[in-house]
């Protein structure tokens, strides 16, 4: 009896507040927009038969035909892929250096990587607004050093979005790579060097393949949230930066088109299912390899 209650309470909570809401999103994505409260039709008040007959894939057809959505999906994918690669480029050397640092530093370095996690995400993105703006800190600095003659426009461009994503998600990249490099047996690299590898060759042929799991885990941890990102493109990006999270938000709050917003959400979810499943598989394989 105790066992049943123990299972039932969290189960019921998740069903009611996680699964059922999704069913509702899916249902509304098949509905039509209406001038009513709530602003879509049909509702179950119309009766069960007419309710199901009134559902159709019109919104999805609309998303297909309007190239705004295509562009937004593609550009989200592109931004997520490129920023994942950039995060890897920034994160790997830091993780590598942390794994090579003296034993007594490592706990402190770890804490320094984790500390930004606890700081408000919004504030960390906001901090870049003051740095990247026309008369911001970066432009002032570059003008002062004489590298540039006139201020660069960085804020409200896609470049600023890349900087924002790399900045906020780089700890997610550093931690799994560090964990992989930390376990790496140093004698393997020595062996490679003894056998005639140069340091760079040893790095490419031994270190990188052995940290592969960390790289894969880190990349997914950056890619998945970056794809649906809303705050970064809306604060740092400009009107030219199309990202699907932002489109969904605007469709819902500005245009009040709930059926189309729901259809956008359903497709975003479909886009994410493949990387999420791949990520789960990778984690499982790793767990099995260690266990």
């Amino acid at each position: 009896m105790q066992r049943v209650i123990l299972i039932a309470i969290p189960y019921a909570w998740l069903l009611a507040l996680f699964l059922i809401p999704f069913v509702i999103v899916f249902k509304i994505s098949l509905s039509d927009i209406a001038l009513a409260i709530p602003p879509y039709t049909p509702t179950l008040d119309d009766g069960v038969g007419p309710f199901f007959r009134a559902l159709d894939f019109e919104n999805f057809a609309f998303l297909m035909s309007d190239d705004l959505y295509w562009k937004a999906y593609l550009s989200s994918l592109r931004i997520a892929v490129i920023s994942t690669l950039l995060t890897l480029l920034v994160g790997y050397p830091v993780a590598y250096a942390m794994a090579r640092a003296p034993e007594e530093w490592r706990a402190t370095l770890m804490m320094l990587v984790i500390l930004p996690f606890w700081t408000s995400f919004l504030i960390r993105v906001y901090a870049w607004m003051g740095i990247l703006s026309q008369e911001g800190f970066l432009n002032q600095f570059l003008l002062w050093t004489g590298v540039i003659g006139e201020p660069l426009t960085i804020l409200n461009t896609t470049t600023a979005v890349y900087i924002g994503i790399v900045y906020t998600y780089v700890p997610f990249m550093i931690l799994p790579i560090y964990a992989a490099l930390d376990r790496l047996d140093g004698s393997l690299i020595e062996a490679a060097e003894d056998l005639g590898c140069s340091r760079l060759q040893a790095f490419w042929l031994v270190t990188v393949p052995l940290s592969k799991n960390g790289i894969i885990a880190g990349s997914f941890l950056v890619f998945i949230p970056a794809l649906g990102e809303f705050v970064i493109p809306s604060l740092l990006g400009g009107s030219g930066t199309l990202m699907i999270g932002k489109v969904l938000w605007e469709e819902f709050f500005n245009n009040r088109d709930w059926p189309v917003a729901s259809a956008v959400a359903v497709i975003l979810l479909l886009l994410l299912i493949v990387p999420i499943i791949l990520f789960q598989r990778n984690q499982q394989r790793q767990a099995e390899a260690e266990g």
Binding site: P21, V25, W249, A265, L268, I276
Partner: peptide
């Protein structure tokens, strides 16, 4: 792993 916009939208609905 769910994007926040989707979680938020579904709960609001």
């Amino acid at each position: 792993v769910m994007p926040e916009v989707i979680t938020g939208l579904s709960l609001l609905l």
